[in-house]
Nucleic acid binder design. Structure first.
Lengths: 319, 319
DNA sequence: CTGTTAGCGCCTTCAA
DNA sequence: TTGAAGGCGCTAACAG
């Protein structure tokens, strides 16, 4: 593998001159720089990252941690993050599994974005004290050293429930998600709080954030139907779509007999009829906030805790 | 950040003794080894990966390259690969984007699995000659230095078409996928060959491997329907499910008026009614083959070209 | 403007 | 069984 020494030899200069030339340090004659660059190019020189990292203590690589690659929700965020991080010249890698957490103390990556409930807060704090930088998207941490950018689920719940209960409401059905999901916990607990404080009855149907689990929840809904429109808040869109699908086999219709809203403003929800009313947020905005904060933190600015704004996209599913 | 030197000082030995002790080299007194290990543990020592890589020229990290994280995100394969690679003690990272291709010549990763049509064969061969190892899943390469493990689409097409044409067949509709997909190209070209060699008429409806594109293709099918069952090969399951969905709005039914089979044996296809007949293959087998071959190649054994076996899972969609 | 040199943290040969 | 020392490839003072 060709290295800086080979170039120096070929160019008849010292290795430091090569290093300066290649790194654009303004210390070397323009002509020799061009000559060196040409040679480097000709022999296909690419710097060894390990050596550079060892010296500079920085990799400019940011790792995104996921619990697993199942489901297909995080695809859009990952693609957006890739673009946002590139604006700051960071390279992105995606990791999963406990063992890969080592990359941080090993100094193989400078920082991490956490979307992985298996990555313990304890470890995050430990590595933070080793100089690694973190932005978490899936938990609240009581530390001003850890960046936090969270979907504003509180506001989202309020938007849905106040809209859903504009007309007289005896009861609201909540289709919940899996226990280990931060978003589920937030949406669920705030829904319950909101409904209790407004003295509205509710019932929780347990789901898993999958279309299939929404499909099964819909069976319960149909059973509960007694001639009056049923009001439902589904804690994500996929499950709401499952409800749509189940209702195709019945004579109940969305927007009339079943009034339902979801979260995430997913593509799926935009395609069904009537379109699903959903709490949305801008993925690109999220990824830009993340990249900007990481960049700030890597330049020794303070971490922050921010909420990602949400809005209600109205379809016809609330009538 | 604590290093080998700190441990040496704390233990009152030299750094080489520490290195031996920690790496299990059988050269150091068992008692001092235990003492050293204890100290390393106490002060939370974790070796610096850049330094080790620089010295050993190996990272034990394998990169998986994807074109993007959207659409047909290969979640199941990635999760399986993670497990298979762990058996050989390799770490896995997932990368996307042209710039991250640099990780290979930079020697940040030892090997790569390619599922990314944007990663050119030219670059793969170039990096191969620099000592990096590759297994490609999305193309055939005329080189015995590059590992290749491909879904046996030829056999898959034969299984579907011979089954589909058991009864008298005038014409077969093919719902194709996107141009840049290797699997699409193989399935499509072999379908055409097979049908031509059997003197059966065919028509290609262009799709994109998405449910929505299948939905649109179904409109064409319905137009073409003239009282006789229509025979359809969908080059993946998602599009076939799109056909199911569209037909819900019509009075044609799958398994009677429309006979359809797909590829990939996806979860979605197992849930619809009637279940979708589909060409399946074992993801775990695929990931094990990949990990085993990579491990062999990294131990200087020859690369191979293998085909992943397929089988036909019968649902009711062919009647 | 260019060269010499001292490490970064680790592994490993050679010597004791 | 342990230690000293060289070097992996690169960067960045410091000299010249």
């Amino acid at each position: 593998m060709v290295n800086i020494k080979d170039i120096a030899k070929a160019a008849g200069v010292s290795i430091s001159t090569v290093s300066y030339a290649l790194n654009g340090v303004d210390k070397v004659n323009e002509k020799t720089r061009q000559r060196i660059i040409k040679i480097a190019d000709d022999i296909n020189y690419i710097p060894n990252r390990a050596a550079r990292t060892l010296k500079t203590k920085a990799t400019d690589v940011i790792a995104i941690y996921l619990a697993d690659f199942g489901g297909n929700f995080y695809g859009r965020l990952l693609d957006a993050l890739k673009i946002s991080l590139e604006k700051y010249h960071y390279e992105m890698i995606v990791c999963t599994g406990i063992k890969s957490h080592r990359f941080l103390p090993e100094q193989m990556v400078d920082a991490a974005v956490i979307l992985d409930w298996k990555f313990t807060t304890e470890d995050i704090l430990k590595y933070t004290h080793m100089g690694r930088k973190f932005v978490v998207l899936d938990r609240e941490i009581d530390s001003d050293l850890v960046g936090q950018i969270l979907v504003d689920n509180y506001h989202g719940v309020e938007l849905v429930l106040s809209r859903l209960t504009e007309t007289k409401t005896d009861k609201v059905f909540i289709i919940s998600g899996p226990k280990n999901s931060f978003d589920n916990e937030q949406r669920l607990s705030h829904s319950v709080e909101w409904l209790e404080s407004h003295a509205i009855d509710y019932e929780v149907l347990e789901g898993k954030f999958t279309e299939l689990s929404g499909y099964f929840a819909a069976k319960q809904l149909v059973k509960a139907y007694q001639g009056q429109p049923l009001k439902v808040i589904s804690l994500n869109d996929e499950m709401a779509v499952g409800v749509y699908r189940y209702l195709l086999n019945t004579d109940l219709t969305i927007g009339k007999d079943i009034l339902i809203a979801g979260f995430d403003n997913s593509e799926m929800g935009q395609v069904v009829t009537p379109r699903l009313t959903s709490v949305g947020y801008e993925i690109d905005q999220w990824s830009d906030m993340i990249a900007t904060m990481l960049n700030a933190m890597l330049n020794d600015q303070a971490a922050e805790k921010l909420w990602l704004p949400v809005h209600l996209t109205e379809g016809g599913s609330l009538g």
